[in-house]
Amino acid sequence: MSHAPGFLAIVNDAKTRVREIDIPGYLEMQAAGTPHILIDTREQSEWAAGHIPSAIHLSKGVIERDIEARIPDHNTTLVLYCGGGFRSALAADNLQKMGYTHCISMDGGWKGWTGRALPVEK
Rank of each mutant, 00 (worst) to 15 (best):
T114M: 10
T101D: 02
A48Q: 12
A48F: 04
P119E: 10
V120F: 01
G112S: 12
N75F: 04
Q96S: 12
I104F: 12
N75A: 14
A117T: 10
L8G: 05
A69I: 13
H57M: 11
L27K: 12
I67T: 03
W110A: 00
E121T: 15
T77N: 04
I56Y: 09
A49M: 10
P53F: 08
H57L: 14
G50E: 09
R116S: 07
A49C: 11
P119G: 04
I56K: 12
G99N: 07
P119M: 06
W113V: 09
I104S: 00
I56C: 09
H51M: 08
A31K: 14
I10T: 11
C103G: 07
S45K: 14
Y100N: 06
S2W: 03
H102G: 00
R70Y: 11
L118A: 11
H3P: 00
E20W: 01
N94S: 15
P119S: 08
C103H: 02
C103P: 10
D73C: 12
G84L: 02
G109W: 00
H3M: 15
C82F: 01
V62N: 11
P119C: 05
A92V: 09
S88Q: 10
A69Q: 15
L80R: 02
T16K: 15
P5I: 12
P53I: 15
L27Y: 03
V11L: 12
K97P: 00
E28M: 09
K15G: 05
S88R: 05
R70T: 15
S45G: 06
T16I: 09
V79E: 08
T76W: 03
T77D: 01
P35Y: 04
G33N: 09
V11H: 03
E121W: 00
G83W: 01
